[in-house]
Design a protein around this nucleic acid. Structure first.
Lengths: 340, 340
DNA sequence: TTGGATACCGCAAACGTTTGCGGTATCGTT
DNA sequence: AACGATACCGCAAACGTTTGCGGTATCCAA
């Protein structure tokens, strides 16, 4: 119950706490002999320094905060896994919060993490987040911040993203090459940069190929299965279906998939489908879902690495990098070439 | 950069830090008037108490540690989501670590969390974990611990689990009722209590119905898709397939599913399949996977609640409860009645 | 023998809180 | 008018570290 502190250890050894502290951190002022004695005693008595006390003194902890919209979403949990991986390797631990896609909770989360004096912050903003004073606040306090996936572009931080524009563009080109012409898009919220990029990629790809965009087929919604279902609902009410649909991510693609099947629509004969993410389910549905793979795990790893860079290079201020990770269009059955 | 501390706030108000501290925590010794003044000033200057300092003084932090085998696994990420949920509601934050299914890393994780003076610990042990001195150590230090899903039974802690025995038993009964006779089981590791229970449920169900267990169809492995594939591989090498297979979880079931399909085996005509968890993919594959649903989110919530109980009831030591959550067999296409 | 390096080590303050104890007004009672 | 309650509030120590500064041996050179 009671702690075994550095003082106890010092007493056992007949030296001062300062000496123990310095010995443990390999300070040159301490003789090799005492260092050895201290190390052995620490081992023997299972002494582990109190991180809390250390943090208070150093004015910074060795934990990094992570905020995501939803932990349970496969994409984010994979990112978190990547983050934890490199954090662990560097002796950091992570504090994870979810905003549940609300701004209110996102700012509460950042406050909580800042109050816990995290060394740095990793965040993918919620769909509601259109102001970022809470994040500017974090930066103003000197807490390094790096954004990933869903980023607030105006904010001067390191970012790790994918080339949403290009990925969407290529996905649409693939559909066109496969013989589809009347191509729709289930988008997310316009405020999200990611969405704007994907949408623009979609539009440009059509335009560059002399195809018109039927605005009725460009439907905005959210990021979940139900949003995919809802979008299909609107199409069905319309009484007219596109040839193909580019969904903003896999969950909405899957939602659309299911609803279309329920309605007796054949995939891809009647309408082709492509998603974003390559969720585990994507390869398993029948026909398998064509989707652009996002390296979620790698995204977590590099985001964490970027943050650690800033943490160690403290003082010599590093410039903000934004690294864009490569994606990969994984062509599967849901976009089989027309007439094949 | 520099902190705005309680001293600064006190100076602005012309009172002592003690008064501010007490005012903030609604101490009866402070007049309503000063409390109001303090509250307003705190608001105005954006004062947030330094949790680190608080923790040091209180000798306990308001963060709870979570250790799971793998964050990215759907089941665990959902549990974590539930944990975060109730932690958030109670003003706690969570530190998440993954053991990657290794004991070594699991003990490192516990040490890191203890060094961070977490208020309590939530854990699902790794498959390698057959000793628990590291957990006993945690308990000895007076840190409350509650186990979930994968538990070390001999350890006297609160636990939240499902009735693995009964769930497996009922799943097998369902298969029998559906006309299947030669039923196999893809199990996990014998050291894991969960596995033993499911296996026993499987065996007893067979026995109770006068069915013999063909030991060649009882295959041990891991918990991932590849393990499911591997198990099927062994069956194929055997040159003989069971009527039906109860998989230890959904990933294994899915792995088996895919491999069986590759081999041209029809599901459920040639072999039926049932899993555990109800992963998102389960309902999406074709035929949809019959599976016993585990309330992952609820498991996270109740585990966290149990921990919080212990934290608040500090002193008046609470007894250890083990709550078993209800499961639900979700019958789908992969176990369609024989001949139907 | 003296002087200055050099090698080790300890004192004490500090990090930002909380809290036991004591202190000073103010008030109501007698 | 004096006295005990009562209501508020401040002092200072403590939580477990780290670290600047100073101090004491020891040693080598002169």
């Amino acid at each position: 119950m009671a702690q075994f502190t550095i003082k106890d250890l010092a007493r056992k050894l007949g030296v001062s706490p300062s000496t123990v502290s310095r010995a443990l951190s390999d300070h040159p002022d301490i003789s090799p002999a005492t260092k050895r004695r201290v190390a052995e005693a620490a081992q023997k008595y299972h002494y582990h320094p109190n991180q809390i006390a250390q943090s208070l003194q150093k004015k910074r902890s060795s934990t990094i905060g992570v905020i995501v919209p939803e932990i349970r979403h496969n994409f984010f949990s994979t990112v978190i896994s990547g983050i934890e991986e490199v954090a662990y390797e560097s002796g950091y631990t992570i504090m994870v919060c979810q905003s549940n896609e609300t701004l209110a909770r996102e700012v509460l989360n950042t406050q909580a993490l800042v109050a816990n004096r995290v060394a740095g912050l990793l965040i993918a903003i919620s769909t509601e987040t259109s102001r970022w004073d809470h994040l500017e606040n974090v930066l103003a306090r000197g807490v390094p911040l790096v954004q990933f996936d869903r980023v607030a572009e105006p904010l001067d931080t390191s970012k790790v993203v994918i080339d949403d524009y290009r990925a969407a563009y290529e996905a649409v080109v693939h559909l066109i090459d496969s013989g589809y012409r009347r191509i729709g898009h289930f988008s997310g919220r316009e405020v999200i940069a990611m969405d704007r990029h994907r949408c623009r990629g979609y539009l440009d790809a059509l335009a560059d190929h002399g195809l018109a965009c039927d605005r009725r087929f460009l439907i905005r919604g959210g990021y979940r299965e139900e949003d995919g279902r809802a979008a299909v609902e609107r199409l069905l009410a319309l009484g007219e279906l596109p040839d193909a649909i580019l969904a903003v991510n896999d969950p909405v693609a899957v939602g659309a998939f299911v609803r279309l099947k329920e309605a007796g629509v054949r995939i891809p004969e009647d309408v082709a489908l492509v998603g974003f993410s390559d969720t585990p389910a994507a390869a398993l549905i029948d026909p398998a879902l064509t989707t652009v793979y996002q390296p979620a795990f790698e995204m977590g790893r590099t985001a964490a690495s970027l943050l650690l860079e800033q943490l160690t290079a403290e003082g010599g201020s590093v410039e903000m990098k934004t690294v864009v990770l490569p994606t990969e269009l994984r062509v599967r059955g849901s976009s089989r070439p027309r007439g094949a």
